[in-house]
Each structure stands twice: as structure tokens, then as C-alpha cells.
């Protein structure tokens, strides 16, 4: 849904509203690297308890879990809405939701390595389909549709910046993922590169869509990449390219959704001090399904996304602040203990 919020009211200039989000992403990656260096050997929730005390540590940990849960619901239910609204119209929403969450649940149960391997395997597919989309839009793309580049009303710009903030806030999942990564000094550089590449990819999709549809008629399109896929024709024998796009989207959603759900269930398990508990895992997933079903339709999802983006303006910085201040205090304490020979 990010393209919709960026473009609505802002047109091509909306792509620039991704910059604050990009800055936030860089701050999160840097903070995460600093925290990991300070609290080497600790996963997030035990580290928080160690840094901030039991009560405050668990409260901040719960804040992280809530954020991951809201992000996971927003991401997965966005895809469910697309499937239910455009492709599988008669299949009940609950059935699609159960299918997706079952898939994501099994993936997250097996851990990060399986998720990473699936993402690697599917990366080629994503690249091929993206290239096909690019080729197919050649005949209908016009650079004049992108111009002039002008920002819209301040309110539209603020909404775009908030949504960008929320979208990049998903990188908070790195705090859960980092301890599982290999002890490689260049991980943060690779993460920055990955963030840069995905930002460029999203921007290109948006520019492609604007070049095809123009800046003014895109305001009513919620699923801009899907509309682009419906528009594109790859020769006369391949017509329903939205089916290809649905595959691409599913791959991305399953990988992202799998990781986010893993963060939620792992976070819950760490909060309760359990390891690999199937009741907690599937119970959490059932709760996520229930949370998402409260949004009855795409309008409900839009409203949820709007509210989450507003709350994220405070939520994300507060969580980051706790982690950074806690890390600094912890490092200071460690050095003092080392100095005292303890």
C-alpha cells in the first residue's frame, strides 16, 4: 500500500517522500549494529531485561512484539485483500487468511534459515517477473506523464512521510534477526545495500506505474503494481499478467510475512522465557489471524494502516531510544566492572 499513500496528492514527487523513511532505516541498521556489538551473545529480550531491568525490559520487549504483530497483520492482510478482491472473488476471506497464515506459520516454525533459503531461491523468479513487467510496459510508458514534479498539499506530503516511516520501521525486525546472523563485520554494510536496492526497486515500480497511468488518475488506485500488471501485455499469447504478478507478490509476502511472524512468535516465546513452544507459536498466529479479521475490507485496512503510521511516529523512536540508551548504560556498566576487575 506504500505506493498508494506516496502518490496520492503528490504525484511523481511522492517518491521523494521515501527519503525520511530511508533515513530512519539507516538509523535502525546503525542502532542495531551498535546494540549487537554491545550485547554480543544476547538475543533482544534478554538483552533488554539486562539493560533496563526486568519490568521495563519486558515492557519495551512487549512494545517490540506489538509493533511486529501490527506490521505482520498489515503486510499479510494487504495481500489477502488483493487476492480476495481481484483474483479469488468467491473464496471467503477467512479461508484465504487461514491458508496464508498456515503457510507462513510453518515457515516461521522452521526458523530463519528456511525463510532465508526460500527467499534466495525465489529471488530469481522475482527478478525475471520484474523484468517481464518492465518490458511489457514499454509501449504504454510516457515520460511526460511523470512531469512536472510538484509536491501536493502539505497534508498529502505528511501522510506520505508517515507511511514511509512506518514502512521502513519494519526494519526493527533486525533486532530479532541480528543475533542469528553470522559474526561478520560487514553485515551492516550489506543491510544498507539491501535497503538501498529495495528502495530503488520500489521507486522504479512507482515511476513505471506513473509513467503508464499519469499522475492524476493514480489517486484512486490502491494496488498500483497490480493495476500496472493488469495493464501490461506481453505479446499476444500472454494476457493475464496479473497472475504472474500475483506469484511475485506471494513470494515477497511469504518471505517477509514469514520473517515478521517469526519475530512475533519468537518475541512472545522469549518474553515468556520459553524455547520453541508450539502452543505459544500457533496460539500467537491464531491471534494474528483474529486481529486481521477485524478489518472487514480494504477500507478497514487502509484506516488501520493510517492509524499505525501516525502511532509509529512516536512508537519507533521510543523503542529505538530505549535500546540505544540501554546499550550505552550497559556498555558503561561493563567497562566499569572491567575497570574494577569484576
Amino acid at each position: 500500500m506504500l505506493p498508494y499513500f506516496l502518490i496520492k496528492g503528490n504525484g511523481t514527487a511522492g517518491v521523494l517522500a521515501m527519503l525520511p523513511g530511508l533515513l530512519l532505516g539507516a538509523i535502525i541498521i546503525t542502532s542495531c549494529a551498535f546494540w549487537n556489538k554491545t550485547c554480543e551473545g544476547y538475543t533482544l529480550f534478554p538483552a533488554l531485561t539486562e539493560m533496563l531491568g526486568t519490568f521495563l525490559g519486558k515492557a519495551v520487549g512487549f512494545g517490540f512484539v506489538l509493533f511486529y504483530a501490527s506490521f505482520a497483520v498489515s503486510c499479510l492482510y494487504g495481500f489477502i485483500e488483493v487476492i480476495n478482491g481481484h483474483l479469488l472473488l468467491e473464496t471467503p476471506r477467512m479461508v484465504i487468511a487461514i491458508g496464508i497464515f498456515l503457510l507462513v506459520g510453518v515457515l516461521s516454525w522452521h526458523g530463519l534459515e528456511d525463510i532465508a533459503r526460500i527467499a534466495t531461491l525465489c529471488a530469481i523468479l522475482v527478478l525475471v517477473i520484474s523484468l517481464l513487467m518492465l518490458m511489457g510496459s514499454k509501449g504504454v510508458f510516457s515520460i511526460e506523464n511523470l512531469l512536472p514534479i510538484r509536491f501536493g498539499e502539505p497534508e498529502s506530503l505528511l501522510i506520505a512521510v508517515r507511511q514511509s516511516f512506518f514502512a521502513y520501521g519494519g526494519l526493527l525486525s533486525l533486532f530479532m534477526v541480528y543475533p542469528a546472523l553470522a559474526r561478520n563485520a560487514h553485515v551492516s554494510k550489506k543491510l544498507m545495500l539491501a535497503m538501498g536496492v529495495s528502495s530503488v526497486a520500489v521507486s522504479l515500480w512507482i515511476i513505471l506505474a506513473l509513467g503508464v497511468f499519469g499522475q492524476y488518475s493514480t489517486g484512486s488506485m490502491i494496488w498500483l503494481p497490480l493495476e500496472l500488471a493488469r495493464m501490461i501485455q506481453l505479446s499476444s499469447f500472454l494476457e493475464r499478467t496479473e497472475a504472474l504478478f500475483a506469484i511475485l507478490w506471494m513470494v515477497v509476502v511469504v518471505a517477509n510475512g514469514g520473517m515478521l511472524v517469526w519475530c512475533v512468535t519468537e518475541g512472545v516465546q522469549q518474553l515468556f522465557g520459553k524455547r520453541k513452544n508450539s502452543w505459544l507459536h500457533w496460539g500467537t498466529i491464531a491471534l494474528l489471524v483474529g486481529m486481521g479479521m477485524q478489518t472487514k475490507n480494504v477500507l478497514g485496512l487502509l484506516q488501520l494502516q493510517q492509524k499505525l503510521s501516525v502511532v509509529s511516529l512516536f512508537w519507533i523512536p521510543i523503542l529505538l531510544l530505549f535500546v540505544i540508551v540501554g546499550s550505552l548504560r550497559y556498555r558503561h556498566r561493563q567497562r566499569r566492572e572491567e575497570g574494577l576487575g569484576l
Binding site: L87, L88, T91, V95, I98, L102, L103
Partner: peptide, 15 residues
């Protein structure tokens, strides 16, 4: 069992 169960949800036969 899991594959059979998810096949019921993920194959699009409803549509």
C-alpha cells in the same frame, strides 16, 4: 496430512 489440509485452502478451487 499438512499438505492435504493446506491444499484445500491454497488451490483456488473455490473460484
Amino acid at each position: 496430512l499438512f499438505v492435504c489440509f493446506t491444499a484445500a485452502f491454497c488451490n483456488g478451487c473455490w473460484d
